[in-house]
Computed example of a mutant assay.
Amino acid sequence: MWYVYFLLLANGDIYVGSTNDLKRRFKSHQSGQVVSTKSYLPCELKSYVAVETEGHARELEKNFKSGSGKAIALKRLLRLSDLSG
């Protein structure tokens, strides 16, 4: 199983990533081991999507990082009101 996940960073931005071990990856974000998020801690796991293959996960991650994909994620997966706390 692969996961596409969404983190709410301390600066209010959303980080999108993918992994086959969500618990391990989230711990690595929280401990400052991920270069792209370590300056924006603490972070919070807001949502994730589980898919069967790495290829599908990477495709979704890329899509969710695009402008229209991010808008869909915010509207459908993350619910804007949930991001304020």
Rank of each mutant, 00 (worst) to 15 (best):
E59F: 09
E54G: 10
K65T: 09
F64I: 02
K75D: 10
E54Y: 03
G69N: 09
A50W: 07
K75R: 11
R76S: 08
L74F: 12
K62Q: 14
E61I: 01
K62I: 06
G55Y: 08
L60I: 00
S47I: 00
K65Y: 04
T53H: 06
H56S: 06
E52P: 06
A50Y: 04
E61G: 10
A73S: 05
E54M: 07
S66H: 07
Y48F: 15
K70L: 14
A57M: 02
E61T: 08
S68T: 05
E52Q: 14
G67H: 14
V49D: 05
Y48P: 04
E59C: 11
E54W: 02
G67T: 13
A73Y: 00
I72P: 00
A71M: 12
L74E: 11
G69W: 08
T53N: 03
H56K: 15
L77E: 04
L77A: 01
A57V: 01
K75F: 08
A71H: 12
L74T: 04
E52S: 14
K62M: 08
H56W: 12
N63W: 14
Y48V: 02
K70Y: 12
G69E: 03
R58Q: 10
L74V: 06
L77W: 00
K65S: 07
A57T: 03
V51A: 02
E59S: 13
S68H: 15
K62P: 03
K75Y: 07
E59W: 09
K70S: 14
S47Y: 13
L74R: 13
V49R: 11
E54L: 08
I72H: 09
A57W: 04
V51Y: 04
A73D: 02
L77D: 00
K62H: 12
S47W: 07
L60F: 06
A73M: 02
E61P: 08
F64L: 06
T53W: 06
E61M: 03
A71K: 13
R76N: 07
K70Q: 08
G69L: 07
V49L: 14
K75L: 11
K65I: 02
A73N: 01
A50R: 13
T53E: 05
K70C: 11
